[in-house]
Structures are given as structure tokens and as C-alpha cells.
Amino acid sequence: MTDEPLLRVRGLTKHFPVRQGLRATGLVRAVDGLDFDVRPGETLGLVGESGCGKTTTGRMLVRLLEPTAGTIEFAGRDITHAGRRELRPLRQDLQIIFQDPYASLNPRHTVGRIVAMPLQVNGIKPPGGVKARVQELLELVGLNPEHYNRYPHEFSGGQRQRIGIARALALRPKLIVADEPVSALDVSIQAQVVNLLRDLQRDLGLAFVFIAHDLAVVRHFCQRVAVMYLGRIVEIGDRADIYERPQHPYTRALLSAIPDVTRLGPAGRIRLSGDVPTPLDPPSGCRFRTRCWKARDICATEEPALVPRDGGDQATACHFPEVAGATEAIVEEVSR
């Protein structure tokens, strides 16, 4: 915990104006004040239901979207509003892998060109030549380096995602934002790609922000996990804490949805009632209160801060966090 964080995010916010004609009629509070750090070589999982702002966050981190407020520091430098030229040296350290393996590869380019693109736009000439470097990368992600001249349409979804990974690795980045890199793939292939990412992470010492919509996928990959709900982080902590000692009701609900979490027993499956409220008009106080079975009056008036409990590394934004070891009580409470 002593080393400097590679990525330091404070109060990160993105509001999208909603227009009708020329008039702005509202604000989508897609991301509303995130704080988190990622240390070198660390993997942070960012988990939450669809629409909670994960993609928006990821795209702000790599500066594809302009943040509305807050700061992003990368390797000690404030990049929140850095222009293209200022970003240039940092681009090489900060890359992104996209969700859709079909839309993320230019259909008119060969695999070789796709993977070489980051080298080309940054004017980098690797020692052994571009082709050798690209083939090395293809091999690294488990593709046949001879397929250098092929076009994306000749590959399967899993292979395409590997191409996207090779492209992200081309500049030898320090941090990769992976936006649901496997959720568009068949379940059987998901595991292969996650394993590939884990091996790469280990061998190359990469830091990851790994976005996923359930806790199952990030379980074996991420050292730390942040749970998002409606544009905010509701709980963040080490893997063991999150999976074994969840303190936020929402985290518990997400965990109980994983089939192999059997400890809670058949009665322990928490079904969240109601829909996710619209980010156009989020609930007052705690945003989760409309679906929370523990909500009290204070939850509607006071927003719970994301604060560490029991003096540890785990932080929870809830007025009535779970106390460690109280799992059984919850089960009873829910099944009543």
C-alpha cells in the first residue's frame, strides 16, 4: 500500500445533457463522483448492472469522453483535460479493450494493419521491424502469426477479441481498461480469454481496470473490486472482503445471483424488486434505497459516504452496513 497509485481518480463525474430540439431538458447523471486508485500491476474490477455508468467511466479513463468534473491522475500527472498532444506520451501507457469484438476491428484492414495501428500513429519503429513485432504480439495472444494478412471477417469472435488485445498490447501499456471484454463471447470461450488476460497481466505486470456486469467474471481475475450502482461506487475492497464479507446490501444481492455461491442456501437468493431508477432523476439520499430491503428514513435524506469500515481497506456507502459474520441474520431477514 505504500507505492504511488498508477491511476488516481477523484470525484470523477459525467453528465450528459438531454436535448429536445435546441433546449437542454435534463441531465443524465451517468457517472456521479467516483473515487478510486489503481496501483501498478493491480487489477481492479468495476462491476454493476447495465446502465450504471461502467462504460462511461472506462471511456473517461482513456479520455475518449471528456469528464464533466473530477480529476484523473495517471502516473502522477493530471490528465483530466489534457489535449491530444499532451496525452501522446501517456497514450502508450494507457490502452483500452472494447466489448464488441465485431465493431472494434476495422473490417477493411488486415490483422497486421490493425495490430500495427498504435505503432503507426505514434511513429514507433520497433527494432526488428513492425511486422516482426506484430507477429510477436499475435503469438503472445495465442493467434497464428501467419494470419498477419487476413481480414477480421475471417476470424471467430474469440479470435477477434484476441486481435483487439494484441492491439492494446502493441505499445506496451502499463494500464489497460477492459470494457466487458468477454461478455459478447460464448461462455466456453469467455474462460479462455479471461485466462489469457490473466496470464498477460502476470507476465507483463499490467494493471487492469476490468469492467463486468456481474461478480462471477471478475472473481478469479481481480485483486480488488468496486461495485457500482447508478453512477456511484457503493462498495470497494479486496477480493476476499467483497466476496466473503460483503457489507453493502447491493453487493450481497449481486453475489447471491451467482449460482455457485451456495453458502447462502436456497433461501439466500436475494431477488431485487423493482427496476433500476433512471439516471435522469436518481433517488435522493442513498440511490439504492428504492430497492433496498433495509432502507429507513435516513436513507432518503442523507447520502451515505463511501467510508472504510472496521478500519480496513474495504469501504462501503451504506448507513446500515452488514457486520462481519452476520450473514445468517440477513438470510433470515430476507426470507421473512
Binding site: 496525452l87 484492414h109 500513429v121 492491439r167
Partner: peptide, 23 residues
Amino acid sequence: EFVEAAKASGAGLGHMLFRQLLP
């Protein structure tokens, strides 16, 4: 996303228009 990928790698306007989009 392939356009975004180029942008995330720091590609300039010329590369975007003539290498990524036009083809």
C-alpha cells in the same frame, strides 16, 4: 469502436479520416 480504438491510441484527424473511415 474501431474508430475509438484509433483515437485511444492518439491518432490524428488525417489518420482517422483517411486510414480508418474512408476505406
